[in-house]
C-alpha cells in the first residue's frame, strides 16, 4: 500500500475516532446532563482542543499529500465544509464558555449548544465523507455536487451507523453499563446499517473485497468488536482500553477497503498523490511531528494520572512519621 495513502488515512482514522467519541459525548450529554455529562467532563476538558486540532491536522495533511485533488474537493464541497466550520467555532466557543461559567443552569445551556453544534459538525463531516467515498451526487468534471450527494441511502445509513457506534464507544469508554444488552444491540444495528448502506451505495467497499487480506481484515474487525462488546457486557475494565483502538482500526480498515479510490472508483488517488522531493519532507514532518505529539500526549496522560502535589507531600510526611 502507498505510504502517503496510509499516513493520510491513519491521520484521518485518528481524527474520526476522536470526533466520534465527542459525538457520543454530545448525544449522551444532551440525553442526560447529570447522569452522563459530569462523568465525561473531566476527560473532555483537557482533550477537546486536541480533538479540534486533529481537524486542522487532517485538512493540512490532505493539502500536503493530495495537492492536485484540492481544486476538485475545494470547489465541490465549499458550502457544507464552511457551514461545518462555523458550527465548529460554536462548538469550541460554547464548550470553553461552559467551563468556568460557574452556575449549573448556565453550564447546562452552554453544554446543550456545544452538543448540538458538535452533532451538526459530525453530520456535515460524515456527509462530505460518504459523498467523497461513494461519488453520489458528485459531478467530477464540473466540480460540483447536488443534493443527491447527501440525500441518499448510504449517507443516511452511515450517519445512523456512526451515531450508534459513537454512542456505544462512548458508553464503553466511560464504563456506562446501564443496559449492556441494549448497548450491544445498538452497535450491532450500527454495523448492519453501514453494511446495508454500502450495499445500496458504494458496493465496492464491502461487497467486492479484492483480496484475502481484505476479507481477513473484515472478519478481524468484527471479532475485535465482539471481544470489546463481551468485555463491556461482563463489566471488565479492559473494554475501556480496547474500544478506541477498535474504532481506530475499524475506520482504518474501511480506508483499506476503499484503497485507492475516491468518488465511487471514479478517481484513483494514487494518480494525485504528492510525489518527488516534497513527499519525502511531508513524510518526515508527519513522523517527526507525530513523535512530538505522542510524547506530549504521554506527558499529558502522565500528569493527569498523577496525584495533586499536596496529597503526594502529605503521603510522604505520613510515611516519614510512620
Amino acid at each position: 500500500m502507498n505510504m502517503i495513502y496510509l499516513l493520510n488515512h491513519a491521520i484521518f482514522a485518528a481524527f474520526l475516532s476522536l470526533i466520534a467519541v465527542e459525538l457520543g459525548i454530545s448525544v449522551l450529554g444532551l440525553a442526560g446532563y447529570k447522569d452522563y455529562w459530569k462523568k465525561m467532563k473531566p476527560y473532555l476538558m483537557p482533550m477537546w482542543e486536541i480533538n479540534g486540532t486533529f481537524a486542522v491536522f487532517y485538512i493540512v495533511a490532505f493539502e500536503a499529500m493530495y495537492p492536485q485533488l484540492l481544486t476538485l474537493v475545494g470547489t465541490a464541497y465549499i458550502a457544507p465544509a464552511l457551514a461545518a466550520g462555523l458550527f465548529f467555532i460554536l462548538r469550541n466557543a460554547f464548550l470553553s464558555y461552559s467551563e468556568y461559567i460557574g452556575s449549573e443552569k448556565h453550564e447546562k445551556r452552554l453544554v446543550g449548544v456545544y452538543g448540538i453544534s458538535t452533532i451538526i459538525v459530525a453530520v456535515l463531516a460524515i456527509s462530505i465523507l460518504t459523498s467523497a467515498v461513494s461519488g453520489s451526487g458528485v459531478n467530477v468534471p464540473l466540480q460540483s455536487i447536488s443534493i443527491a450527494a447527501f440525500a441518499n441511502v448510504f449517507n443516511i445509513l452511515a450517519i445512523l451507523s456512526i451515531v450508534l457506534i459513537a454512542i456505544f464507544c462512548t458508553k464503553v469508554l466511560f464504563g456506562f453499563r446501564g443496559n449492556a444488552v441494549l448497548d450491544i444491540g445498538m452497535v450491532a444495528l450500527g454495523i448492519v446499517a453501514i453494511i446495508i448502506g454500502a450495499y445500496a451505495g458504494p458496493s465496492y467497499l464491502l461487497f467486492s473485497l479484492r483480496s484475502n487480506f481484505d476479507i481477513a481484515l473484515f472478519v478481524f474487525e468484527l471479532l475485535f468488536l465482539f471481544v470489546v462488546a463481551v468485555l463491556h457486557a461482563s463489566g471488565k475494565r479492559l473494554a475501556r482500553f480496547l474500544v478506541i483502538p477498535w474504532l481506530f482500526s475499524a475506520i482504518l480498515a474501511f480506508t483499506v477497503f476503499q484503497y485507492p479510490y475516491l468518488f465511487g472508483m471514479e478517481i484513483n488517488m494514487l494518480a494525485y498523490t504528492a510525489s518527488g522531493a516534497i513527499s519525502g519532507y511531508v513524510v518526515f514532518i508527519t513522523v517527526a511531528g507525530g513523535l512530538m505529539l505522542a510524547v506530549s500526549l504521554l506527558f499529558l496522560l502522565y500528569m493527569s494520572m498523577r496525584k495533586p502535589y499536596r496529597i503526594i507531600s502529605s503521603n510522604r510526611r505520613n510515611r516519614k512519621k510512620a
Binding site: E49, G52, T53, A55, V56, I59, V60, E63, L70, T71, L72, V73, G74, T75, Y77, I78, A81, L82, G85, L86, F88, I89, R91, N92, A93, L95, S96, Y97
Partner: peptide
C-alpha cells in the same frame, strides 16, 4: 477556544475559497 476555531475556519477558507 474561539481563536483556534476561527483559525480552523481560515484554514478551511484557504482551501475552499482559493482551491
Amino acid at each position: 477556544g474561539v481563536g483556534t476555531a476561527s483559525g480552523t475556519l481560515v484554514a478551511a477558507n484557504l482551501l475552499f475559497l482559493w482551491p
